[in-house]
Design a protein around this nucleic acid. Structure first.
Length: 574
DNA sequence: GGGCCAGGCGCG
DNA sequence: AAAGCGCGCCTGGCCC
């Protein structure tokens, strides 16, 4: 390379016949150079460019490119994920109405599923649903996206969002590569303790069998089927337990001797079927749980997961999450993230004041003259979710008087949704427009021939949508805050020292084995796995990253994002 | 034997 | 007391 060669600002990658086509772009997006890289050389080439610093990788879909790099020990600092960015820009209110990025339908296709299996040559329906993987398509879409950002009504926010989204895409792959340290022996101990010894040849463990017998005795029917809802319902009716469903909350209201053992039986069966020995065998390998995280898998921008139920690990099993020897887990969750986000985005200083102390709900109870923090919590959740009835619904008006700005923000979002409009998060992620079916129901209600049932239906689905948009702005902005938090934390952890090879957390993969790293993420909570001597510094990084995320999104607005942080050998709550 | 739905329940 | 947001996954029961 000669001295005159400028460093590329972006490098766009595309696949071509098993090779990779490579385009170096300057900061204006002009192409400086193109190259063809053979697949055998690709990882080394990327590693080399990355080591020179400050390059942003532009690719179709992070899970299609990044896992093989991570497996080879290459971590990259920054990327631009075309698929995720497309989805944001396509729907965003901040992008001009007729912008060509909205019409680039090929980029609406689903990406790869995030498992690092070989490309799905066999199960991909020929041509359908495939994201464009070639360089020309990537360059064209990247140009459209840059233009959409440049011409957006608030480029700063949207750039922040798309950068955070792409960082999230990297993090999702990295979380899977590092895995969540999971102790199978401890998991087995918990299962055995709650369910009884695992039977050698199928069948139910002893404690469940005993519990089932208890339930059948109480039902006076040794043959009663406990796993079929309709049959169980009939059996309950026969002994005079007149419930409409077999759900726990309804059962609980009855005194009959069947109730307690039945609830216990359901709880045991749930643990067995959802997170029992077969889950352990299928999902935990080499002391790690490696779920597939799906960034923006939820319309609000929250992440979803696919396989392994990563978003539903029951609290009962938290003790099975255990640091490697000589390492620690740092578990951190944000206390009441959504109310804090609502305070900031509505500039409601009164609500922000309540969030300043250690007990947000307690402060709301005091300010809002509500009796006790439980009522305050109910009222606030009701306001954000759109409760209309029950105790929660009754408490909302009181809150509206105390925090008019915050409540106006969510009430406005609900009204717009009911009217068929769209709403946006703080950084510009916009809710999907109403479906065709929804609009048909609304227009059917204004028809001359509309029946009372038509208007009732229209009102009901209208309110349903209002509750969705009401919550969208808060849940979606909270997800943005969390992305910013994680992206910042990722950078801080990457700057931490490495430990000696003999201290490595071997199963965490080549990139993360010797350094503090993110191991789990769930909406408002992170778990970091760190060498014991770096645990305090990692905990500090988590706290500093949260403060930094708050400033990045909300500037100087005075709202605290308080964290609960624990350093321990297991993720069990103290 | 696979696809789809409802009920139920785990998580935030 | 059981309304009021967003998910994924398991089961039984139904369909083809």
């Amino acid at each position: 390379m000669t001295r005159a060669d400028p460093r590329p600002h972006w490098i766009v990658l595309g696949r071509d016949d098993g090779d990779t086509l490579w385009a170096s772009l300057d900061a204006t997006g002009a192409t400086i150079a193109t190259d063809r890289v053979r697949s055998a050389d690709l990882i080394a080439r990327i590693a080399h460019e990355e080591s020179l610093g400050s390059v942003r990788w532009v690719w179709s879909d992070t899970p299609a490119w990044y896992p093989s790099l991570l497996a080879a020990g290459v971590r990259i600092a920054r990327c631009h994920d075309l698929r995720l960015t497309h989805a944001i820009l396509r729907d965003s209110e901040l992008v001009s109405a007729g912008h060509p990025v909205r019409a680039a339908r090929a980029w609406d296709a689903a990406g790869v599923d995030g498992t690092d299996a070989a490309p799905a040559l066999f199960d991909l329906p020929s041509g359908a649903d495939a994201l464009p993987g070639d360089l020309d398509s990537a360059l064209a879409e990247f140009a459209r996206q840059r233009d959409a950002l440049d011409t957006a009504s608030d480029p700063g926010r949207l750039r922040l969002l798309t950068a955070a989204e792409s960082a999230g895409a990297l993090i999702a792959c990295e979380l899977r590569a590092a895995g969540l340290p999971w102790n199978a022996v401890e998991h087995d101990r918990i299962l055995t303790g709650m369910l009884g010894e695992r039977p050698a040849h199928g069948g139910l463990p002893a404690a469940i069998v005993a519990k089932a017998t208890e339930v059948r005795d109480a039902l006076g029917d040794p043959q009663a089927s406990l796993d079929s809802q309709p049959k169980l319902l009939r059996a309950l009716h026969r002994v005079g337990v007149n419930v409409e469903s077999t759900s726990r909350w309804e059962l609980r209201r009855h005194e009959h001797p069947v109730v307690v053992p039945l609830i216990e039986y359901k709880r045991m069966m749930r643990l067995l079927t959802a997170n029992g020995w077969s889950w352990l065998a299928e999902w935990v390998d080499d002391d790690r749980f490696r779920p597939v995280y799906v960034p923006a898998g939820v319309v609000t921008g929250r992440w979803a997961s696919s396989g392994g139920g990563a978003l539903q690990i029951p609290r009962q099993l938290r003790a099975a999450v255990r640091a490697d020897p000589g390492w620690k887990l740092i578990v951190a969750d944000v206390a009441q993230l959504e109310p804090r986000v609502l305070a900031a985005m509505s500039s409601d200083t009164a609500l922000a004041d309540a969030a300043r102390g250690a007990d947000l709900y307690g402060a709301i109870a005091e300010h809002g003259k509500l009796e006790g923090r439980e009522k305050a919590k109910l009222a606030l959740l009701g306001a954000m979710y759109g409760a209309t009835s029950g105790e929660s619904g009754r408490l909302v008006p009181q809150l509206r008087r105390t925090y008019p700005r915050a409540m106006k923000l969510v009430d406005d979002a609900a009204r717009i949704g009911e009217d068929g409009g769209v709403v946006s998060t703080w950084l510009g992620r916009t809710s999907p427009p109403p479906s065709r079916a929804w609009r048909d129901v609304q227009s059917g209600a204004t028809d001359d021939a509309a029946s009372a049932a038509d208007t009732d239906l229209a009102r009901r689905v209208g309110r349903d949508r209002g509750r969705f948009t009401r919550n969208f702005v808060v849940q979606g902005t909270a997800a943005e805050w969390a992305l910013a938090w994680m992206a910042e934390l990722r950078n801080r952890l990457a700057a931490m020292p490495v430990v000696a090879p003999e201290r490595a957390a071997r199963a965490s993969g080549p990139v993360f084995a010797r350094q503090a790293h993110l191991a789990f993420y769930l909406h408002d909570e992170v778990v970091v796995h760190a060498p014991a001597e770096h645990a305090d510094a990692a905990a500090d990084a988590i706290v500093e990253a949260a403060a930094s995320a708050g400033r990045l999104l909300f500037g100087g607005f005075p709202v605290d994002f308080r964290l609960d942080v624990h350093i321990a050998d297991s993720a069990e709550k103290a």
